[in-house]
Amino acid sequence: MAEKVHFGIGISTAVDEVEETLRLSVRADRAGLDLFTVSDHPYYGARLDAYAQLGFVLGRTESIAGLVSVTNLPSRPAPMLSRTVTSLSALSGGRIVLGMGVGGLWDEITRLGTERLGPGAAVRAFEEAITLVKLLSGGGDPVTFEGEFYQVTGLEPAAAAAAPVWTGSVGPKSLAATGRVADGWIPGHAADWLSPRYRESRPVIDEAAAAAGRSPADIATVYNIPGVITETPLAATRDAEGRWLGGSVAQWTEELTGAVLEHGASGIIHFPVGDTPLDISLGRWAEEIVPAVRAATAPRTA
């Protein structure tokens, strides 16, 4: 998979948690995490706009990259999304990854005045959007694009290089589109490297990538992993169905080291759960677990 393993943290988009979220974001940056992620639900008034939050946090930090996981594409037309992402890239020194989704909560999405698309059309629009966003990045000649859903005429690309595109694909058609045009995949529903979802979905991506003349190894798999980080070990780190629950720093380190070395995980984004204060969870994650996994998975020199 990807040479570098990306470690990140999911942060809140709640309007009433802004102060704490900004403080934790700065701490995550100073602790050396690679990514922070925010969700994109613009139809909820109690949530911050994802890209406004992303830009503000990037302005407060120095090294950490931002990811909207994943962009609600139906509410953000591809040409303007490309301008947003390339602008944030230019302003932040390239500290952005573009997360892309087909769109899931259509009853909510249509409240924004967006036209409802059927499943097949939504996937076609998704693939078209990724292609166009990339065409409008990295400079070059003006772009004319005549697609089913997007049309631009003689539009000048932004100078900033295209951001890596990671998708939240779930269905087979969307997974195949990821294989053809994206750079990474985030399995849905917090599925991990041992899940049936991963085992059944990743081959669809790989087959589509190979058919398009791409190397499947160039498409990263990045996991959203919720779980508690406890002071003492848990008797069981997974439930009866095999879903990860969490555990101590040592238990997390062992599990994630295996995920990288044995299952080729390219990135792991932690979402704290449970009653542990966020400061403590972030400290254990960023200052203990991540450095330990990085050390255990670093290339060995002769």
Rank of each mutant, 00 (worst) to 15 (best):
P233G: 03
A177C: 12
E156T: 15
A158D: 14
V222Q: 06
A162D: 05
P196K: 12
G188A: 12
A211F: 08
P164R: 08
P226K: 04
D192I: 06
Y198L: 14
P216T: 04
G171Q: 14
I225G: 00
T221H: 12
R180T: 05
T221W: 11
Q151N: 09
W185G: 02
E156L: 13
V204I: 15
P196L: 08
R214I: 09
A182F: 07
G242E: 08
T153S: 14
I186S: 02
A210G: 00
W166K: 07
D206K: 10
G154A: 14
A235F: 04
A209T: 09
G171K: 13
A161G: 04
P226F: 03
S215D: 15
W185Q: 08
A191M: 03
S201A: 15
A158T: 10
G184C: 05
P187K: 05
T230V: 05
N224A: 15
P233F: 01
A158P: 04
A210V: 06
G227L: 01
S195E: 02
A209E: 11
S215Y: 01
R199C: 00
A177K: 09
G184T: 02
P164W: 12
E200C: 09
P172Q: 10
E156P: 11
W166E: 05
E200I: 09
A236V: 00
I229A: 02
G213W: 14
I205V: 14
R214Y: 12
L234D: 01
A163D: 02
I219A: 05
W185A: 04
P164D: 08
L175V: 04
I219C: 08
Y223V: 11
I186L: 15
G184S: 05
L155Q: 15
D239I: 02
F149G: 04
G227N: 03
A236T: 03
A217V: 12
D206F: 11
K173G: 07
V165R: 01
T153I: 13
I205T: 01
S169L: 07
V152F: 09
E241D: 15
F149T: 03
A191Q: 10
A182P: 10
V228D: 05
Y150V: 02
H189Y: 12
A240R: 14
Q151E: 13
A208C: 11
D206W: 12
T237A: 03
A158I: 00
I219W: 07
A159I: 09
I186H: 09
G168Y: 04
E207D: 14
P216N: 11
G171C: 12
E231F: 00
D218I: 00
G184E: 01
A159W: 08
T230W: 00
E241W: 11
V165C: 01
A220R: 07
Q151R: 15
A220F: 07
A176T: 01
P203N: 11
R214D: 11
F149N: 07
I229R: 00
G154L: 05
V228K: 05
A160W: 07
K173E: 14
A160Q: 15
T178W: 10
R214P: 07
V222W: 06
V152Q: 08
A220W: 04
A176P: 04
G171Y: 03
Y198T: 12
